[in-house]
Structure formats: C-alpha cells, structure tokens
Design a protein around this nucleic acid. Structure first.
Length: 507
RNA sequence: GCUCGAUUGGUGUAGUCCGGCCCAUCAUCUCGCCCUUUCGAGGCGAGGACCCGGGUUCGAAUCCCGGAUCGAGCACCA
C-alpha cells in the first residue's frame, strides 16, 4: 500500500507530517502589514502583572504580522473607577520597558467624547438607538420579560430632543440613558437594548485630567466607546478576556446598525498566579493610600512596577506569556515558571557576589598553611570574560565573616569547613586556622567575606507577606553597578537597588 | 433561572477543524544520576494526563448524543 502511494501519490504521505506549534497561535484573517490591534487598560492605576499579558500578546502579534498596536486608555468612569492622573504616563513607561519600544499609537477615550456623541446622534437619527428614561430597576423588568418598554417606540425626533436635554444637563444621573435598539426577545438577556451612554455627576466626581474635569456630563459606556473607537482606528483583531464575550455580541449588533464589519476576536481566560492572592487595582490603590504598602512598586504587590523594581527581565516575562499562549481556559500559573523563564535570561550574564547574612566575626590565623595574600575567582563561573573578583587579604589581624547558619553547618562537621575558592579551615570559638589551601577532604563549601573587602548592606525580602530587611556584609565589587542584577551565591538573585541596598529577586 | 464558553500529567501547553504514523508534544515541576570549589547554571534519565457514559467506525484525545464539573455575562463598571 505504502509503496503504491509513494509511487503514485507521494503528496498524500507528506501531508501527514504535522508540524508542532509552540507559542502564540496564528490569528485568523491576518494579513501581513495590515493587522491593527489594541490594548485598552483603565488608567486607574499602573499596570498589574495580569495586564502585562495584554501588552505582551498584542505587541507580539503586531511584531509577527508587521502591524501595529494601539494603547488606549479607557477612562470613562469618573465615579467608580476614577483614573489616576499619573497612570497615563506610568503605563506608557511600563509598555516601553516591557516591549522595548512605545506603543505605535496612544488614544485617550476622554479626549474623544465628542466623537462618541456624534455617533450616538447619528444612530438616534437612524432609529438605531433611543433615550430611555426608565430607572435601571424598571428596565430590568422589561429585560426579564422580553417586552418592549414604552420609551422604545419614541420617534427619532423625540429621541433627539431628549438626547439634547441629556447633553444640556437637564437630567440627573440615573434619569436617562441612551440604549442601542437590538431586540427585546433575544435569547441572551445581556444583549437586549443594552445601554450605550449614561450621565455621570462630574461636578462631585470630576474627571481627574485637568483638561476634562467637569466638561462632560454624558459619558459613553465601555461597550459603546470601545466599539466606536475600534472602528475609527481600523482595528482588525481584538484580543480580550472571555468575560467580554457578550461585549463582542453587543458590539456586533451595534456594528450591524452602522453596517460595519466587526474585527476578528479571540479570547483568553483568567490567569491566577498561585502565590498572589486576590488583588484589584482599586483595592491596591486604597491600601497604598492608607500606607499599607509603600507604593505601587512594593515587592508584595502583583504589579509590573514591583516586578520591574525587583529586577525581572522584560524578556523573561514576555517568554512566560508567550508560552502560556492563548486559550479560553482559566489558568493558574506558578511563580516558579516565571522564575525559570527569568533565570534562563539572566543567569549567563549575572555577576556572582558574596553576601553574608547575620555575619559572625572570626579571626583567621595561620595553621598548617599561611593565610594566602589574595583571593581570586571568576565573576561568573562559566564565563571568564566577565572578569575576576580579586581581594587583597591582610596577613595581620585577618578578620572574616561567616553566616551564623554556616557556623552551625561547621559545627555538625567537626568545625571543619571550606571557604569557597579559598581554603579549608577549622573553627575554634571566634578563631579559625587554615588547615589546607587545596581541598583536602570533602567539606561543605560556604561563602564568606574578608573584613577589608566588604561593606555593610541590607537585603530587602518578603517573608510571609511582610517586608523584611536582612542585614549583612556585601562583597565590594567594581563589576557591579547600582541597578544591576547579581547572584548572591547560595542565596539567590537580587538587584542592587541603591548603594549597599539589595532587593531580593528570587532564588 | 436564562445565555455563553471551557474541560489533555501537580501546573501551563501541542495535537481536536480534515479519525489512524498519539502506547499523546514541549516546558515547568518532582525524583535520580553526571558535571560544578554556590543551595546557581548546564547535561542525562525517570515520573505523571486525553472529565464521565453511551454511540459511529476495522480504528476516536479527535466525529455524534447524553451527563458532570468549572468559569463568565444577564451593571446607568472596565
């Protein structure tokens, strides 16, 4: 059989060789050079770790299809989710850091309110939308009963008048809303005459941007604003959470009124990180204002700012999200996976350094051998090009530091231990003598410091959701600049945040 | 309740459209070994999964029917 096929129809055999796909799936109907994507966070705080998924996925697709992606600030709720003025810039900085370049375009919804008004007017004129003066509760009845409300039958002219009254401020919040006319008998209740624009009390809840403040009383809701803007910007593909599936359906109904074609849409599920509890942007904002956290970059917070501060590499984060790919499953990932991605990026270029926690002073004396005058080892064990760590060691009154914990380790080993890259020693009280330079027997190897070649330093870390400051001695090094990542041998990776101040990254 | 959607090892994925080469991929994880003067990195090996029940078929992770479980929407939030 096979040989017959080989002879007569070899393509049938070849077709069976399936290629394995990794990373992001292809986008449907994606034409190279023509793809336009967007990511639309609410600027009520800087980006959370979860948001970074949106930035990474959209920018990666834009790169793959040589298209562009728009960063859009959906800042249309001044009451419940008031924007944070500084977030607009913070988010753009974070995007730059994460993707290595700015978004291709930035759109701020609150700058475009009048444009949204135009489309609302147009649709009301066409009879595709109407002003509804029912209360939310009253309308709910009609939605549940699949019956038309009396307001629904008003003529476009009457609706236009009411719309003008809304804009003029003749209605208070809750008294009038613009609804998109769909069909009250639609099986999905979420789609029945859904609300598109509402009134907000911007006297008491002004928009935080100075140029906006109390300028508008009527504000579009997400489904309307987003749909109009996507069309105006020529968005071809929308990647959004599956919680917005009904938004797609609502917006498609709106697009039908205008006879526009809706973009291709793909969904992702929720992502939980085992180690992070439930955090919301507004919750974090409260806690920060109350002083519970030191800021958005507090290392206990699941924000991009925090991860960036701790020293995560943007590339590692990107790889993490790409590997998670795009599925509608609600997923629960572990920090271990993120660490693993990060280590792959940083390990080969990260200088090694000794940091002795809770240092105990020991006087080092000559023993079977004299104290060597120099300590010499590589900055990176696998890469000599990164240079050498070299200390001059005084031969008189030589004081070294060992970790308290390592003293216990030595105790369990007849007080004999090996100082890494240096010598075997035997400890006796606060003194130690050198037994041999070369490793004479298999001893535990510990890191250590010479008092003339180190300085006091602190390591900030998180233990059970509390910030801890570990005091210790840090090796002096001219290979490590402030803000760079180091590996504290036998401890883990950390960032030298300031002179003599380290912040723990991960182990 | 109504309406959507998802279901592959501990975790995340590939494969599902167009059934066989899938005794199921890759990564993470765990364990073992090697290497290494770090509890790091690297190398090698092992462990572990097609939600359940029927059906169609020579053959089902893949198709059909039923069920279960989980999640989301039904806000004048985003």
């Amino acid at each position: 059989m096979k040989s017959i096929l080989e002879k007569n129809a070899p393509e049938l055999l070849e077709k069976k060789v399936k290629e394995k796909r990794t990373g992001l799936p292809d986008l449907k109907n994606a034409e190279n050079g023509k793809v336009v994507l967007r990511f639309a966070p609410n600027p009520n705080g800087p980006l959370s770790f979860g948001h970074s998924r949106g930035v990474v996925i959209n920018s990666e697709y834009a790169k793959r299809y040589e298209g562009k992606w728009i960063l859009r600030f959906d800042d249309t709720d001044t009451v419940r989710k008031p924007p944070l003025p500084e977030a607009y810039q913070l988010i753009q900085d974070e995007v730059q850091w994460l993707t290595g370049k700015p978004a291709d375009k930035v759109v701020i919804a609150s700058n475009r309110i009048e444009t949204y008004y135009e489309f609302a007017s147009k649709l009301i004129k066409k009879g595709g939308a109407y002003v509804c003066t029912l209360s939310a509760d009253a309308f709910r009845e009609f939605r549940q009963n699949k019956t038309n409300s009396p307001d629904r039958s008003r003529s476009p002219e009457e609706n236009l008048k009411l719309w003008e009254k809304m804009l003029n401020g003749d209605f208070s919040p809750g008294e009038a809303v613009v609804r998109i006319k769909t069909d009250m008998t639609l099986p999905n209740p979420a789609l029945r005459d859904w609300p598109a624009l509402r009134i907000q009390d911007t006297e008491n809840n002004p928009h935080p941007r100075n140029e906006i403040k109390s300028k508008y009383k009527v504000w579009p809701l997400l489904d309307f604003q987003s749909a109009i803007e996507d069309h105006l910007q020529g968005v071809t593909h929308i990647i959004r959470g599956k919680d917005l599936m009904d938004s797609t359906r609502k917006q498609t109904l709106l697009y039908n009124h205008f006879e526009w074609t809706y973009p291709e849409t793909v969904y992702w599920g929720r992502v939980k990180i085992h180690e992070f509890g439930g955090f919301s942007t507004s919750g974090m904002r409260n806690d920060i204002e109350e002083g519970k956290y030191r800021g958005w970059d507090d290392s206990r917070l699941p924000t991009l700012a925090s991860m960036r501060r701790r020293g995560f590499s943007a590339e590692g984060l990107r790889n993490f999200w790409i590997e998670l790919a795009l599925t509608q499953k609600d997923i629960s990932a572990s920090m271990a996976t993120i660490y693993s991605h990060n280590v792959k990026i940083i390990d080969e270029s990260t200088p090694r350094l000794f940091f002795v926690r809770e240092p105990i002073e020991i006087n080092l004396e000559n023993g079977n051998e004299e104290i060597p005058r120099v300590f010499n080892t590589q900055v990176h064990p696998e890469d000599i090009k990164l240079g050498l760590r070299k200390w001059e060691i005084s031969k008189e009154n030589t004081t070294i530091y060992l970790e308290k914990k390592d003293l216990e380790l030595a105790k369990n080993n007849n007080y004999k231990i090996r100082l890494k890259d240096f010598a075997d020693i035997e400890i006796n009280g606060n003194k130690a003598k050198i037994n041999s330079i070369n490793p004479s027997e298999k001893l535990p190897i510990i890191h250590w410091l010479d008092s003339n070649n180190c300085t006091k330093a602190t390591l900030e870390t998180t233990i059970e959701d509390e910030l801890e400051l570990i005091h210790g001695m840090l090796e002096k090094s001219n290979h490590v600049k402030v803000q760079s990542i180091v590996q504290l041998e036998r401890i883990g990776y950390a960032k030298l945040e300031h002179e003599n101040e380290l912040i723990f990254l991960h182990d």
